[in-house]
Design a binder for these strands. Structure first.
Lengths: 231, 231
DNA sequence: CGTCGACTTGAGTTAACTCAAATCATGTGG
DNA sequence: CCACATGATTTGAGTTAACTCAAGTCGACG
């Protein structure tokens, strides 16, 4: 695969002049990870950032008792660990490969010198960090102000937007991972899906398929306008 | 006050060449707000960002039922609402003056043209957004993985670092605001302070003073290593 | 000195958790 | 292609941290 092909698929680098693509190719290192393999741990010293090349990666926090909260799940083309490039010197969270994955690694030093030649890169990075901040405000809002059914409803609607088939979504991660992403535990998630099914809001389609029977009710759940009835 | 004096106190602009300070002065607008006055609402169209000049400002989310979660409390020199400058077109949260305050307003358009002349501004902004992202990961971790006593302990230790007097802090916001910042309600905060006092971990010093009797125990509470005993 | 918001305390409720025990799904070695 | 091992998921029973609602009390400002 040519440099151009490798970097065109990465939003952060899209549209850079070919010569800069070549420069990028000189500073990049490719790393592979097996399923479940740790990429970095919170607190470790960071010297650069990554872009997922293939597979999927989760970035997460973990509590003293071992409960985890997923911050992001990243797929091909998405960068992660950009924060310690510009502030602090340590990874603020953990990262692990969810499946066999490969990632491009850019050292901070080399990336900085590239930014000087291509100021547009700094603007691209500003946009990326801003999107992340926005995503985090939504996660904070969910955790602090919504109940689990509301977060679940919001996630189902998000999948419905992202995926093609109308009113029919496929869970792209295990329910255990989804529970961690929504700030709850698998048992609770299972019960909420059961309640939403018995209320006629959703219905199960095979192992990981969910049909959104009432988009309207999901919207009201997600906004907090209504709640799921008891038991 | 000269332009230079006005901008030297703002970390984001510190060290800019005098000529750029003059440029800044040309694009800035000063706004004042009374205590409790709204600065912007979530979802409104955004055309620029602010820097607190005097007073204090809270940035917060609010639920359908009216419960609020404070995202930041900002003082002089700190920018806010930078996100919609680089991603999205709308404010992702609400902002309100906690006391009589004034803020400098920079329109996106004019700020962009300034960045082109002063690339260092983009790097400063990257550092600011990165710090914010880091703060948000901590807040997410607190909300998802810690109990209220742990969050409170962490906040007291944070104040202890920030303020000068050793093992003695002054709450700089009302307990109602603190509850909202910690993701809880005033009643719960009041009970937790009472429990920490009866456990001999802290003691009350007047209305808003708190003496940190056992820094060690606060640290263990904040990390989740120990819990507050019942009732 | 009165008023309004801030703070505290009591009593009861509840959403979500923990712990335990099946059951199901997936993939691997034989 | 089958049997089992391992992790994912579900369901039941009980517990709990934190919430809601209610009722004062406190305190700063006009």
């Amino acid at each position: 695969m040519s440099m151009r092909e490798r970097f065109e698929g990465i939003p952060m680098f899209r549209g850079l002049p070919p010569q800069q693509m070549e420069e990028l190719g000189k500073i990049v290192i490719t790393q592979s990870f097996k399923r479940g393999e740790s990429i970095f741990l919170e607190g470790e010293e960071a010297h650069g950032f990554y872009v997922v090349s293939s597979g999927r990666v989760k970035v997460f926090k973990i509590s003293f008792e071992g409960k985890e909260q997923i911050l992001h799940i990243l797929g091909p083309g998405e960068p992660f660990a950009e924060v310690p490039v510009f502030a602090g010197n340590n990874f603020p969270a953990n990262a692990e490969a969810l499946e066999q994955s490969s990632a491009l690694y850019f050292s901070r030093e080399k990336f900085f010198s590239l930014i000087e030649k291509v100021p547009q890169l700094a603007m691209n990075m500003l946009a990326i960090l801003s999107v992340r901040l926005h995503q985090f405000t939504v996660l904070i809002e969910d955790l602090a102000l919504k109940e689990v059914p509301g977060r679940l409803a919001a996630y189902l609607l998000y999948l419905n937007e992202k995926q093609e088939s109308p009113e029919q979504v496929t869970l792209d991660i295990t329910k255990t991972q989804l529970a961690s992403l929504l700030g709850t535990i698998p048992e609770t998630l299972s019960r909420m899906l059961a309640r939403m099914t018995s209320e006629g809001i959703i219905s199960s389609q095979g192992t990981s398929g969910v049909r959104l029977v009432s988009i309207d009710m999901l919207g009201k759940l997600a906004s907090g306008e209504v709640r799921l009835s008891k038991r």
